[in-house]
Design a protein around this nucleic acid. Sequence first.
DNA 1: CTTATAATTGTACTAATTGTATCAATGAAT
DNA 2: ATTCATTGATACAATTAGTACAATTATAAG
Lengths: 136, 136
Amino acid sequence: MVNKKLTLQLDFHSHVPIYTQIVEQVQSQLANGILKPGDQLPTVRALAEELRVNFNTIARAYRMLDEARIISTQQGRGTYITEVPSQKVTEKLKRESLIALTERFINEAQRLGFSERDISQMVRDRLKVKNETKDL
Amino acid sequence: MVNKKLTLQLDFHSHVPIYTQIVEQVQSQLANGILKPGDQLPTVRALAEELRVNFNTIARAYRMLDEARIISTQQGRGTYITEVPSQKVTEKLKRESLIALTERFINEAQRLGFSERDISQMVRDRLKVKNETKDL
DNA sequence: CTTATAATTGTACTAATTGTATCAATGAAT
DNA sequence: ATTCATTGATACAATTAGTACAATTATAAG
């Protein structure tokens, strides 16, 4: 397998800045194993063109990921997922991914007009259903 | 279709405040389908200039619409009609989409390795945070 | 093989665009 | 005249875009 193309879903109407969306999704994909240590990310310009965004916006996201030691950006070479991210980092990443995932979920549900009660009830409900079918 | 220009009729002699007139007309145009979810509204300054009004008046109207969840204003980016599902969506459909949404969420979270406890705890947690920040 | 040059890539700094916050001025109602 | 809602003026903050630059790598000339 070559050139796993980084696929990002941006919501330009979201209140979440583009660079934050990029950061979150890269973190999530790393936590999920979609991205792996050593993988090269697209160049700031390439990704910018693909996402129809200014390359400085990508650069900003990369800088944030770099500061979080998640990627390593090297002028003139490219950007790569950091090798051997510590157990601590991956745990933290997973946690943050879950937070981001949960918030997206809640926002989506509320956008549909559901109350907090509805939402938490539904989560309980689905977890329960999952357990019951598993026990068959 | 691009750049549907927001057209507002203001009555400067009315005793109804300008910002109220703006709020009402945007609401009305949304209800009439003249404005649709995702549509970008003019910037506060652009609309202010067009209507010969101070941009703070526009900002105030936008803020009210934002608080009413009708639009989403984003500093540095712009203002958009909120992506809200129409009333035409039946309760049943909504329910079904919440189920689907919830199951996708749970599956994602479990794929990240989180337990059911983790997941429901995180949902409670995020809902709580949301409430607290709202009350500021 | 060494060196010069171009191409590619990230960085830094600045500007432009957009909404926010605060307070002052205006004007109508009492 | 006082009060209060409305509007305006000004300064600020956040996001994105523009431009020039520096580091690395690739390529070609000698």
